[in-house]
Nucleic acid binder design. Structure first.
Ligand SMILES: [Mn+2]
Ligand SMILES: [Mn+2]
Ligand SMILES: [Zn+2]
Ligand SMILES: [Zn+2]
Lengths: 134, 134
DNA sequence: TATTCATATTAGAATAGTTCTAAATTGTCT
DNA sequence: AGACAATTTAGAACTATTCTAATATGAATA
């Protein structure tokens, strides 16, 4: 009686169903909540749960999940830090430089008058706004 | 007969006038052009000019220039890399993930319908859009 | 179920951009 | 010139992430 089918989620996204991936998927997706996460947080959390996964594997897993479209990457925070978002819908963030707190921006907070056009010969792959606050 | 007064620029911004700062300021501001620069580029360039400055000093200098308002920092590029902009006016960028090329967005490319409001108890310090292209 | 093998995991080393340390130097004020 | 706080510097330290290469494992096949 599992309410959340990790095996289906992984295989449907072309990912082999391994113990580390199952544990990470359960941690991130089982309750359907939006989360902003780092590799370190995932590794710590699994450790506390007695399901330790090597940090390198956590990185591999998060990158695989991102390539598979299960996670989005948030750019524009502290240089040198990768933060992933379980909400893969395009949306924007407030980043509190003092506390490190990252919050979703209500969709109504920002509207674009005109979408930017990519320079000749290129196409837009991603764009997101990070509003830094204090 | 100097067309660009580094001494005045530095002291007017509350910075002591040292050899490294004068050399960096001349390199970055003498011709009035907009530039996107890294510490490594500055150190290399000064080295080639026979005016070597220690890399740590270049970092100190760029950070001082930024605090003094002479440079802006561009967030949202590769994690772990600081890029500064001699154009301190708020503006946005295209970032080519393949080539690493960073270009200013024409002001007309993006218009905002509504400015975002910061979460309670905070104020917006900075925001910029990086549109990633390929 | 047993075999197979491409794929994934892992510990530890490597990497790279940036910051730190602490001793020597230098710019500015008097 | 003298005083002293600010700055420079080489090299070490730091830190988040990736790499290496040996081992383990999932899933397809027999
Ligand atoms: Mn989010
Ligand atoms: Mn620019
Ligand atoms: Zn499974
Ligand atoms: Zn001067």
């Amino acid at each position: 009686m599992k309410s959340f089918d990790t095996h289906t989620l992984l295989t449907a996204h072309g990912l082999r169903c391994t113990r580390p991936r199952v544990k990470v998927a359960e941690l991130l997706f089982a309750d359907g909540q939006d989360r902003h996460i780092t590799a370190e947080w995932v590794a710590d959390e699994l450790g506390k749960m007695g399901e330790a996964v090597a940090l390198a594997t956590v990185y591999n897993t998060l990158n695989s999940f991102m390539e598979a479209g299960l996670l989005a990457q948030i750019n524009g925070l502290e240089a040198g830090r990768y933060v992933f978002d379980t909400n893969t819908e395009p949306h924007h963030h407030f980043y509190n430089e003092t506390t490190g707190c990252l919050t979703d921006m209500p969709p109504s907070a920002l509207r674009f008058y005109k979408m930017p056009e990519a320079p000749a010969g290129t196409e837009i792959v991603d764009w997101q706004v990070v509003v830094r606050v204090r």
